[in-house]
Design a protein around this nucleic acid. Structure first.
Lengths: 112, 112
DNA sequence: CGTGTAAGGAATTCTGACACG
DNA sequence: CGTGTAAGGAATTCTGACACG
């Protein structure tokens, strides 16, 4: 896990600025959240906060929408990609497991 | 000049979020601007927008203040550092000029 | 389905000022 | 000097709803 200087993923941008950055209306941005295409965090009071990644994703979404792609379809595509990534991650972990079993680490948790 | 993915330097964070991020009061943040330690941009209406760099600089400032350093002194230090950078930049440009004069570029602007 | 809009309220931000020290 | 605070107003954001298509 990398840490802090992942400016790209830190949720700090309010919806007004996101609207400026993307050219989308606040209505649209909120609607894409309703359709589970985007997942802002909230301030204590409840104001939405977005990351640069979110902004980029919104621009992607806007382009897809311009091509006539439905929000549902965009979501399906997202889920498909996510599944691929997750699968890759799991394969990776299994590989590590194999390696440790054969070559490594008598005492994985450091217990006695 | 690098371009867009300089997330670090894009002014997009409102003062409320900056306050959360730095632990400083909005009053303090505005005051450090008054003392020319920090230079937010503004939205159309006039709301301040800060970058991640600004946030980091504010954290630096807060640390200096905790050590008792005055805002005036912090500013002097900043200006000193800036001067160094600018001087380095100029030396760099002069060097390029020398190189071009001796070895390069008959037609620097591409004109006929 | 995707987006606009008016509605009402609550939180945000702004500026200029007084306060203290 | 550095920061808190109350003041008043303007812009922001939120939600739920009606509208159109």
């Amino acid at each position: 896990m990398k840490e802090d200087p992942l400016y790209k993923n830190r949720k700090v941008i309010t919806i007004g600025v996101v609207s400026e950055l993307t050219g989308l209306s606040e209505r649209q941005i909120r609607y894409y959240e309703e359709r589970k295409l985007i997942f802002p965090e909230r301030t204590e009071r409840g104001n939405r906060k977005y990351s640069f990644s979110d902004v980029e994703r919104l621009i992607d979404i806007a382009n897809k929408r311009d091509e006539g792609v439905r929000t549902y379809e965009i979501r399906q595509e997202m889920l498909k990609n996510k599944k691929k990534e997750d699968d890759a991650k799991i394969r990776n972990q299994m590989l590590r497991g194999q390696i440790n079993a054969r070559f490594g680490v008598q005492n994985p948790k450091g217990k006695n």
